[in-house]
């Protein structure tokens, strides 16, 4: 799959996502360029929601699904992130119980189960009070609210991109975000007033 790499090196400005995807209809190997560009962020997002080992699988699946559907990509969109995060988010839904179990465990005992395999787990063993409360809120949000909130906070996707990713109206993005932020703020309010989020 040397094609996309060579292509990026050879030409000055790197091709937009839609150009790569269009190229990949003719030369499937070009899709490797989409992987190279976005897989680290997609994996990071997935790892944050469901842990590293599950993220490995879901990341691979995200790109397989994307590859398979590339002929239906809207070539008017130069940025493939909303499309890819939409696919990844749908895959996360299948792991919803795992995701929620981890949030609840973190809220309850202050140790994040998704860090189990990480050597740095010792350093991060004691979650801050704020993070425990965040985990509790995340566990209670609706799936739609959680998706919107995390895509905004973790991935810096704009409202329009989130709407595209989740295939929902932009007004729904706003209302879900308002509701989710309100609950988050409420859960953190006393910590904030103490001037510190830490116990």
């Amino acid at each position: 799959m040397a094609v996309p790499i060579a292509l990026e090196r050879a030409s000055g400005p790197r091709p937009a996502d839609n150009e790569l995807i269009r190229h990949s209809l003719d030369d499937p190997d070009a899709f490797g360029g989409i992987f190279d560009r976005h897989a680290p962020a997609i994996h990071g997002y997935l790892a944050r929601r469901v842990g590293h080992s599950v993220a490995d699988d879901l990341n691979a699946e995200t790109f397989l699904v994307a590859f398979r559907r590339r002929a239906r990509y809207d070539l008017a969109q130069p940025d493939a992130r909303p499309w890819l995060f939409g696919i990844a988010t749908n895959l996360v839904h299948r792991q919803r119980r795992t995701e929620l179990r981890h949030y609840r465990a973190l809220a309850r005992v202050g140790v994040d189960p998704i860090d189990d395999q990480d050597e740095r787990v010792v350093a991060r063993a004691a979650a801050t009070a704020a993070h425990r409360r965040i985990a509790a809120v995340l566990a209670r949000l609706s799936t739609g609210e959680r998706d919107v909130l995390l895509l905004l906070a973790w991935q810096d996707l704009g409202y329009a991109d989130i709407a595209a990713a989740l295939d929902i109206p932009i007004g729904t993005v706003r209302s879900r975000l308002n509701s989710a932020r309100k609950r988050l703020r409420h859960a953190l309010i006393d910590l904030s007033e103490n001037g510190s989020f830490h116990e």
């Binding site: 994996h43 590293h52 490995d56 691979a60 965040i134 995390l150 988050l184 953190l188």
Partner: peptide
């Protein structure tokens, strides 16, 4: 939102072998 941004921040980068495998699967 800032507090949420710091939640689970600093994830270990993906295992390069897993990434290579995912890419090759394409």
């Amino acid at each position: 939102l800032d507090e949420l941004r710091s939640f689970r921040a600093g994830q270990t980068p993906a295992d390069p072998i897993a990434m290579a495998r995912a890419r090759a699967a394409l």
